[in-house]
Design a protein around this nucleic acid. Structure first.
Lengths: 197, 197
DNA sequence: ACGGCCGCTTGACAGTGTCAAGTTGGAGTT
DNA sequence: AACTCCAACTTGACACTGTCAAGCGGCCGT
């Protein structure tokens, strides 16, 4: 050791990468700060120099994950060429695809109690994903009983709820990704009456 | 101490009660086995004599919670006198009411990785809640595109998703319980086209 | 060339879950 | 009624966690 004065910001990146890797590998609750440090090749107290607490490290990982999620939602939107509801559904399917690909990270995003001061960057990253959904809802034609807020709630509830269903019954997880996405499509289609005139 | 050879099964009950109390009081991840033991007035290793591991203690608490949930769902069903969809919605609202009243317990029910051997009793308790929902769906009249399984999925996804939404944005939690239940009612009403002809 | 300093390490502390070994009170037997 | 035995519970220990307090050691400005 002691010969590792490589580059200044490398350690931070290595810690983030290690944390991400550990989260993806195992159950969220079994990720330890010390294991991240070990994997990153630094001492067990090194993380403290970059993140005030473990929760802040996790928040940093989740911030990046939120960006990934947003990117996928935008990609889904771009790939859709139907009407407003089709676009909304495509975004929802992209959302579900993200949760399928990174289940442990996804679970953390919506179960972790965020650090005290609420990492500003993460709130912003979450807001981006949220606004993509809101905008897609705004572009649908809805019956008078469905205002913007209720529409957003309904849409998010369905995509997130579907993901939760998969997680709750995960042990089996027998279905292939294709079959799961097909089921998601069928279910999201049930929302149509709320987003078409 | 040493004078506490009270009754044989009292310790087990005390541990369960203590665990329940601690879970309801604080964030799920901050409940420690030792704290349960302290609260129950026994030594830190006493729980091991009644539960093989901490996860098993938690599972026992969750088993009782599932029963509470089922009871409430049945009560909601009994209180409804409308058509099939009204009954389904009443059950869903009771479900949401449970999650509002016992948020920490609820969060644990669907995020905890259950103990290895999967406590049989809990699986059974979960199955009861599940079957109440399934039966209510079966009694609705649905369009041909909505089969039984898809209907159950759609219904559960909406109630659970709504609860998750509240939890994710919990910090504010400004809305009163009444207002929240009213919003839940409006949202569940959007499912109507899938459960009425 | 040489201080100062910042990044990282080592060490410690309180706390956790779980295992191993004791202790002790009550029940059963004779 | 004395004695044994057993099971419930306790005490103690271990490895591990997150976090804090010092301390070392190379790099940078002067």
């Amino acid at each position: 050791m002691t010969a590792d004065h490589k580059r200044p910001e490398d350690v931070r990146a290595a810690l983030l990468a290690a944390a991400e890797q550990l989260i993806e590998a195992g159950p969220a609750s079994e990720v330890s700060l010390r294991a991240c440090a070990r994997l990153a090749g630094v001492s067990h107290a090194a993380p403290a120099h970059y993140f005030p607490s473990k929760a802040h490290l996790m928040a940093a990982v989740l911030t990046r994950a939120f960006d990934d999620l947003s990117d996928r939602m935008e990609a889904g939107r771009a790939a859709s060429d139907g009407d407003g509801f089709d676009r909304l559904k495509a975004i929802g399917l992209a959302y579900i695809g993200f949760a399928l690909d990174r289940p442990n990270v996804y679970a953390m995003m919506f179960s972790t109690p965020y650090p005290d001061g609420a990492d500003g960057e993460m709130a912003q990253a979450g807001a981006r994903a949220s606004s993509i959904l809101a905008e897609a809802v705004a572009r649908t034609e809805r019956p008078p009983t469905v205002d913007q807020d209720l529409g957003v709630t309904f849409a998010w509830v369905n995509v997130h709820g579907f993901v939760s269903l998969l997680h709750a019954l995960k042990p089996g997880s027998g279905a292939s990704r294709e079959a799961t996405m097909a089921e998601a499509d069928r279910m999201l289609s049930l929302m149509a009456p709320a987003f078409r005139v």
